[in-house]
Design a protein around this nucleic acid. Structure first.
Lengths: 237, 237
DNA sequence: TCGTGATAACGAACGTTGTTCTAAGCTAGG
DNA sequence: CCTAGCTTAGAACAACGTTCGTTATCACGA
């Protein structure tokens, strides 16, 4: 198709290029909107681009790829985590408070914990949280080596628990309410465990109620309690 | 090319239909072979089918889809976990032994821990491990509710640690040895943390060595110690 | 005021992925 | 020996992340 003059009376190409220019921040904000509405698997380059009325190729000028977009989303969401005023006297309770707060924020944004589990924290908002925990533990008498590894273990625990919890909502249909979903899922598991052969799995069958008990908060709280007790056993008095 | 009569003296279609029929077990075994050689992301329907000299569609007669194949792979691999003879006197040490053993097996099979993290255990070999841990903790005096939640927390910790560990190997190039990969990765993180602004992240910068210390085994052992100490604090004496 | 060059935007396309469709082949039962 | 039902498998579908090459835009020096 050789060069052709544009037909008379035809606009240059597209009607209104009133498109405000793309920015990395705008892209990440759009991605988080999609995340909240459709889950992490719903955050595709195409879907984010669509949210911005453009094509997927346009995003690559501001973001190196999907991985970087994931990390930027996580760090943006991590900004919502509120940290208390450090109080060395209450360091154990404060460590728990921060863990609960991170879990709350992760669960407010669908699957995002999956991203946190699969990366080393480098963003400013994530490091801000780690810094707080290191500070409060150090002030509380936990030796540096123990505090460092404790931050790691705590983060892993919060992430893994949030991932499992989020899974219940996505594996089931999106129809019912979150509590309904959780209950349906748990009942299925309970029935399966109850039907197990008692001679091979006596404890599982006997403890089926304990294994499937707790709305999720109880379970989390218990694991948190275990971790903090273990950490405290390494602190000097 | 319309229907043509087969030339005389020619075998029906393919030279030797010595193709032994597909079985679920054979498919899972092939999938695990691919997993070990190329990682979890390398386990695609096409790749597994290729390993069996067939097409991807043929697998769906024996396996409902990718998710089920993942779970079957995990359970097959879980059969390699060896459990000690239960000894209530040493329950804390035995819980740790099993956790170490599971981690060893997970890490012997690339990314497989990712699957474990994303599902509720239902396979016979996975339940066998949970049954053992419940039994030994119960015999050791841990109350049922605590034991049930402890199994959950322990499993999550082992899975999450294995996933993180496996990630170091896959994010970097596949060229160097595992230790080399780990070292390269850790040094990158250390340099980044060292370059952080000291006024905003004083503890991170000060503890950079502790945060990046431990070949991985130390870190895991420490987290395990924390968890078991916490669990033990719930046991009756 | 007019080019002009760097950069952003984007339509189209490539190579993969999981999965389904549909037709052909094989095997067991009458 | 023939037919019913299951297995096999080639082809195709929709969706994914990413890249290519071209077009449009805008700040700035002549």
């Amino acid at each position: 198709m050789p060069a052709m003059p544009t037909p008379p009376g035809r606009k240059p190409r597209k009607a209104a290029p009133s498109r405000r220019p793309l920015t990395q921040d705008g892209i990440v904000a759009a991605a988080v909107r999609v995340l909240d509405a459709e889950g992490l698997d719903g955050v595709t380059m195409r879907r984010v681009a669509q949210e911005l009325d453009t094509g997927p190729a346009s995003l690559y000028a501001h973001v190196s790829g999907k991985d970087e977009l994931n990390e930027l989303m996580l760090d943006r969401v991590a900004a919502e985590v509120r940290l208390p005023e450090p109080d060395p006297e209450r360091w154990q309770e404060q460590v728990k408070e921060v863990a609960r707060e991170v879990r709350r924020v992760w669960q407010a944004h669908a699957d995002i914990a999956r991203v946190s589990l699969a990366m080393v924290p480098t963003g400013a908002n994530l490091l801000r949280i780690a810094e707080f925990q290191l500070a409060v533990m150090s002030a509380g008498g936990v030796p540096p080596a123990a505090a460092a590894l404790a931050v790691d273990s705590l983060g892993m625990y919060v992430d893994a628990e949030s991932v499992e919890r989020a899974m219940y909502g996505t594996k089931l249909g999106e129809g019912a309410s979150p509590e309904e979903q959780l209950h349906t899922f748990i009942s299925g598991i309970r029935d399966y465990y109850k039907a197990l052969p008692q001679d091979r799995f006596p404890h599982i069958v006997a403890m089926v109620d304990e294994l499937t008990a707790g709305g999720g908060d109880e379970r989390f709280e218990f694991g948190l309690d275990i971790l903090v007790r273990g950490i405290a056993s390494h602190a000097r008095p």
